[in-house]
Design a protein around this nucleic acid. Sequence first.
DNA 1: ACACAAGGGGTAAACGTTTACCCAAACAGC
DNA 2: GCTGTTTGGGTAAACGTTTACCCCTTGTGT
Lengths: 334, 334
Amino acid sequence: MTATIRDVADRAGVSVATASRVLTASRKVSAELAARVNEAARSLGYRHNAVARALRRGTTNTVGMIVPEIGNPFFPAIVEAVERHLQGKGRDLFLCDAQQDIAIERHRVLALLGRQVDGLIIVPVSATASRASLEEAAQRTPVVQVDRYVEEYPADWVGVDDDLGIGLAVEHVASLGATNVVFVSALLESSSARQRHAGFERTMRRLGLPIGSQQLLGDFRAEWGRTAALQILARKPLPHAVVCGNDEIAVGVLGEFRRQQVRVPEDILVTGFDDIRFAALADPPLTTVRQPHEQLAAECIRLLDARMVDGDTPVQRIAIAPSLVVRESTGGHS
Amino acid sequence: MTATIRDVADRAGVSVATASRVLTASRKVSAELAARVNEAARSLGYRHNAVARALRRGTTNTVGMIVPEIGNPFFPAIVEAVERHLQGKGRDLFLCDAQQDIAIERHRVLALLGRQVDGLIIVPVSATASRASLEEAAQRTPVVQVDRYVEEYPADWVGVDDDLGIGLAVEHVASLGATNVVFVSALLESSSARQRHAGFERTMRRLGLPIGSQQLLGDFRAEWGRTAALQILARKPLPHAVVCGNDEIAVGVLGEFRRQQVRVPEDILVTGFDDIRFAALADPPLTTVRQPHEQLAAECIRLLDARMVDGDTPVQRIAIAPSLVVRESTGGHS
DNA sequence: ACACAAGGGGTAAACGTTTACCCAAACAGC
DNA sequence: GCTGTTTGGGTAAACGTTTACCCCTTGTGT
């Protein structure tokens, strides 16, 4: 089929060693031979076989990344930032989607590991059930977790301080006079869900606000936001504010409120989390907690590089403080 | 580091051939030996090296996919559908982002080809400039294009009939009385942009409507929608309708109109294209042209499989007719 | 003239699998 | 008891690279 290095060597009338040396510039070769080899390679349309190279070298100049669900717009944003940071070093990124399923996640981990990626960036599906996959990955290649992490297993992580972030949102609505606040988020499966939930309770308690049965937990999707909004409307009185676990949920909540003629922010305040591209374009524009993609990606690559250089470097968990972006959904002006 | 099949064979006291046969179930092996081998593999934590296997077998059970920009929510939706359709056959999908850059796209193509993917699904960045990459890919592995295609190069494609789709949108607003219609879309780089643009002009002409300088072309992002909206407002009179090249643009247009106190649909009609998740949640909910993800993905995999079975099967271009989803941005009720 | 280093070429072994080929034993049919 | 087939094992070659090692030539300093 496609030409091998042996074909190139034959046509150039040199040994495969020389051909290889020319093509990878791994050693000095006389100008004349180099020209012959390059010409041969060009005329044959030679492309090196990365598989063979990987087998021999044991390294691939590729990093793998696994996200829980590519359809959640927060993840593509992170992926783009990571890509940009990988760009400089000429490394490739192979991305996989775990479809929110730990069995698929495991499959993807094994697929990437088997393909000898030089490192793995993972946003684990579950704070507990993803442990086996993570553990296996970590003992075979450098791994760093982003955004979400696996509990009780020491592996590098970089993310935003979810607890603090939700705190900012709660404090914000409280400062606007809200005392009856409901929290709409996802079931406590992922670390993000857990941390944000914990942050909500802690802050409410700190501010002396009642918690009661004010928590609706489903998943991180807009559809759940709609459902939750209906549940909120079903039981009177209307709370003062809805703090959402992420922007998708918040957008769903806003959509349903609009449909039900509930005015935001006049009748009720709404906040999100992540600051996805769409948050600023929602109606009303969404007050949210911004995740600094670029910084996250930068730290992530830094950690990965550090661990690639020295696998025994101490485990780090880097929590970056997020910031609140006030928009009209809590009365801010845009 | 990690155990090889030789380690397993040694520990089980068999030859590597037998070990391989047990582990891949490629030939009958006595129950007793099989048990010994499996136990050895288990206790050593053996994982087959996919790189070595790929080199030997020349096949990887993996398909690669390249999208122009993972941040555009239409692509993740397609990716998810493709994943679902790949699921059954246990094949892995490695996804790459071309960052709207044909140089990066080329790099990704080569990376995937070099890794011996069994097939490639690509949404080419450019209708013309992606040709070299596509051509190279096509002569090395089965390739199918989705959504966008490269012009003047025969390769399988499956997508929606963009031309027809825009026609539906234009006819719809025309049926509501619009005669002054402006088209906001992307520069004519990708086939989608070209087809949709052509569809707009053709339909306008067919309906006897004036085209004039009613076309604003930028890129497929919301930010451009905002800018375009401002340009539209700058020159009076306000047109009757804005037909957008995709939903992201439309959402940007809606956002800016809202900010500028222009009422949709009362003052002006707006339509999008794609029916991304967010379209139904925009304010007002967006009338748009729906792309049938599942069908696209199903056809895509079907084409890929066909070509994997027989590389000489005739090239097919499958255009699926999209449908119009009427929502409030053109006065529909939700 | 001689020792010695440097430059530039080739040979062949590795990387970890899978599999074509070979062979011994067991077994069936007569 | 003999032949032919099936079953289940091993040996070693391949997949396409890279690179350790070796060797010959040439240049250089004395």
